[in-house]
């Protein structure tokens, strides 16, 4: 049964998975070009000053900020809008499988695809930065991008939560809370701005449970 759910989620997400992977490759290729251009243009010493002092690299890889966010949002929409359109979720709820298992499997598989995209981007970035910079810079860049990856994960779970919620008023309230929560992760534009990262990891870890709450309200017939 879990294989069937994976199959269904794959049907919904497959084109998005391929397109996002393609965008990731293009974005990484673009950053290789940008990094080489700055090194050539500024010279190694000036570039080093900018990279360390002005967090230049973070500004050159703005797509890393945007891609996980967009991917989380798109995956959430593609998976759950079709389920909620015309109350199609009722079909899923009638399947002979425990409802909590069904919901957790749906978000679990969706997140698995998101995580694959995030890891692809993360290791791609590591590869790109390591082509021109030493380990200290690589570590700074990668650690600084972690809140963005985490923000993408949060956006995915909260998008699923908001779409599954049957009441529009509640959706609106959740939307505002989501914005506030996710925006915190995207404020930093310099290195090492990830204070409280572990707290947010814990928050994201419990987010799948919000889907159970919204699913339960839908099941009860809440309007």
């Amino acid at each position: 049964m879990l294989k069937a759910i994976l199959y269904k989620e794959w049907i919904k997400l497959r084109w998005a998975v391929i397109v996002i992977a393609g965008l990731t490759v293009l974005s990484l290729a673009y950053s290789i070009g940008m990094i080489n251009y700055y090194i050539e243009f500024q010279g190694a010493f000036t570039n080093w000053m900018y990279v360390i002092g002005k967090s230049l690299l973070l500004k050159n890889i703005v797509f890393v900020k945007v891609l996980p966010l967009i991917t989380g949002l798109i995956f959430g929409l593609l998976q759950f809008v079709p389920e909620m359109t015309r109350n199609r979720m009722r079909l899923s709820y009638h399947l002979p499988i425990n409802e909590k298992k069904l919901l957790l499997a749906s978000v679990g598989f969706g997140y698995m695809f998101l995580l694959a995209e995030i890891l692809f981007l993360f290791f791609g970035l590591w590869l790109v930065v390591s082509m021109s910079y030493p380990a200290e810079v690589i570590q700074k860049v990668l650690m600084s991008t972690l809140p963005w990856f985490l923000g993408g994960s949060a956006v995915y779970f909260l998008t699923a939560f908001i779409i599954l919620e049957p009441s529009w008023i509640y959706r609106l309230i959740y939307g505002v809370v989501t914005y506030g929560l996710v925006e915190l992760n995207f404020r930093a534009s310099t290195y090492d701005q990830y204070v409280g990262l572990w707290v947010f990891v814990l928050i994201v870890a419990v987010m799948p449970l919000t889907v159970l709450f919204a699913g339960h309200r839908f099941r009860r017939g809440t309007k």
């Binding site: 049964m1 069937a4 199959y7 269904k8 919904k12 199609r88 009722r90 009638h94 399947l95």
Partner: peptide, 29 residues
């Protein structure tokens, strides 16, 4: 639930699937 066949108002179906995909999906349950 396995013993109950439900037809929802408006002939609700997973319309993002094809004829083969939907059979493939349901048959596993």
């Amino acid at each position: 639930r396995q013993k109950i066949g439900l037809l929802h108002e408006g002939h609700l179906a997973y319309d993002f699937m094809t004829i083969r995909q939907v059979e493939n999906f349901y048959s596993r349950f």
